[in-house]
Design a protein around this nucleic acid. Structure first.
Lengths: 361, 361
DNA sequence: CTATACTACTGAAACGATTCAGATGCGTCC
DNA sequence: GGACGCATCTGAATCGTTTCAGTAGTATAG
């Protein structure tokens, strides 16, 4: 017997089939204590027979005011999130908490054109938002939803939002101090984007101060603090090259530009391991020995950092933990529990083999 | 002036504020051609003023019958998806198509306890489903939803579902032929799980035939075909060790078990690069030289495979493409376009340095 | 024997939108 | 001047649930 070209089976259908009220059927699914076990069993049985797979999620969501999903907003095209080795770690952290509490994860990024639509139309109970550049329209779209939201890595936090962030100033500072301690006096910085639409290239200090991405701003600040504490001049002794993407290719181009400088930096501070990877690649290709002729320090301690050649000195941050904390905060909020305190996670310098003393002059 | 402790602003509120019908306000958002531009502008203006951020996604979803999200079902705990280097690539592929078409991605996995709930209550327009073991309750939950669904890597395809799959038989066969061609006559197989609840260990041929995960079954079949074509005996010349997880740790344990065998296999076929990683790790730790004393072949060609030491010989499959195809199929279906043909993607052996001739006896 | 307390179930009002068949007014055309 | 077309806006039905205040009916207590 053919399962009919099913229009759509609803609560009502199975209520009618049993001659009970729809509310009773609803209760069978949501409040077992409101029915006799026998009736409940009969409800499920008819449901199975009619091919009803439980209450419609949207109708239920509408009525209840919650859908059981948390939105993860990635401030760029979503597919880019997976070319980055650390974004998945962050998402994994959120996933750990979400699955624990029975939430699904709705990933939303900026679509090629209709930038804001996605975040505005996502059926979710709350958002975890990665750092935005100031004035990103996505930010408005998300905040406009007035849903519980946790901000991550976003230093200019909107007041009232719980947030999770990382001691990027300290991490960057430690990285720079490490190099300075080894004797380096001329540095190159391979920077992440300062603003959403910037196209990359060398940056003058006034331009740098316009950094609107939180982590970028913080790391620049950390590098600079270390430098000035060591009595060097940020303007004179450091060249900053901004990369338009967080990819090894962009890092490679930055390396090319920095190594052409006269006098040449003896060490490079990269704001991510992805970028550092590109620097190492370019150095290898040009026959520049690392760390003998050039020291390289990354950021993130992505899994790949331990496997580069030479293994990369970098600043570790715990991306999974970052995701977990964000997830915990949001879920606590969603479940109406005591709000969690904002968190600043630590960073730690991991010294491997890509950094060493500068070459003798 | 305080933004009031906003109850919740609805279409109706802004309709009332303007003295027009709610349908008109709705049209302002959905059918610009149904209003005068001036009124439309006034609608948006009042919306802004009252803090209304557009139609409620759930209500809209209920009425329209679509929410603009596609569900990605992972047949295990969601957080595991991100410990695997290839799952994110697959998701990236789906994301590429989804963002293009304006869909969000709802990730659902099995929750620790309430296994099926998530898939049953996910607000999505359709599903992309990774391979299931036969009889996985998640499968019922998904299929029960009667939503457009694309099956991936699932060899026992439910009739009528479009699917994307990979030539795993061919890939596995090529891997085994490669080793046999080098002269190996005694092999170890490090297998992925056969069934959802299996705990691992050595497998007899009858047990192997019970493999219910599609890719596992296909790869075993491919290995075996190569072996028998070369005139060897699957029962006598091959030991199969099943890993309960797809992790390097599990691979390491498999390696330990296989290398204790007498006579010892001269080569190992691992069903994933993750597992192969563990084998390489164990070999290195035990001082077993690869490939001089032991050849290792992986599967997937994960990015890490090129960076192991020695670089891993493996079978490449294009995970991103797999995701893209699945996404395309589902979206075509959702948009009511011509259904796409099922796809079988190719695999290709990538020979690197972890495989070589067997040691002289 | 009446008051109280459960248990098991019902009815109808939300939830917040979309949709579609009109209604209204106005200019045009022959 | 009547028919027609067009642009603009309205009303009411509908999407599939959940929820909440009841209604019986039976059991327990006083």
């Amino acid at each position: 017997m053919g399962v009919k070209p099913d229009k759509k089976v609803t609560l009502k259908d199975i209520a009618e089939a049993l001659g009970v009220a729809t509310s009773t059927v609803s209760n069978a699914y949501n409040r077992p204590d409101q029915l006799s076990p026998e009736l409940r069993e009969r409800v499920f049985e008819t449901a199975r027979r009619l091919g009803y797979s439980g209450p419609d999620p949207m109708a239920r969501g509408l009525r209840r005011g919650r859908v059981g999903a948390i939105g993860v907003v990635y401030p760029d095209r979503l597919s880019y999130a997976f070319t980055d080795p650390v974004a998945p770690l962050f998402i994994q952290g959120i996933a750990l908490e979400a699955e624990q509490a029975g939430y699904g994860l709705l990933l939303v990024g900026t679509a090629p054109d209709q930038s804001l639509t996605l975040a505005a139309t996502a059926s979710v109970d709350g958002f975890v938002v990665q750092c935005f550049a100031d004035g990103d329209p996505l930010y408005e779209a998300v905040v406009g939803r007035k849903l519980p939201t946790v901000l991550v890595d976003n230093f200019r936090t909107a007041p009232g939002f719980p947030f999770v962030t990382v001691d990027d100033v300290g991490g960057a500072r430690a990285a720079a101090e490490h190099l300075l301690g080894l004797g380096h006096r001329r540095l190159g910085v391979v920077s992440l984007q300062l603003a959403h639409d910037s196209t990359g290239g060398f940056l003058s200090p006034p331009q740098q101060s316009r950094a609107s991405y939180g982590p970028t701003r913080a790391r620049l600040q950390g590098y600079r603090a270390a430098l000035e504490a060591a009595g060097l001049s940020w303007e004179r002794d450091v060249a900053v090259f901004e990369c338009p993407d967080n990819t090894p290719e962009a890092g490679r181009e930055a390396a090319e530009a920095l190594l052409r400088l006269e006098p040449r930096p003896t060490a490079v501070l990269a704001m991510s391991d992805q970028l550092a990877l590109g620097v190492l690649g370019y150095a290898a290709q040009q026959g520049v020995a690392v760390p003998r002729e050039l020291s390289v320090v990354g950021y993130d301690d992505a899994p790949v950092a331990a496997r580069t050649s030479p293994p990369l000195t970098t600043v570790r941050q715990d991306h999974v933990e970052k995701g977990r904390r964000a997830g915990q905060m949001l879920i606590a909020h969603l479940e109406g529990r005591e709000p969690l305190e904002p968190v600043v996670l630590p960073t730690r310098l991991i010294v491997r083999e890509s950094s060493g003393p500068p070459p003798r002059p």
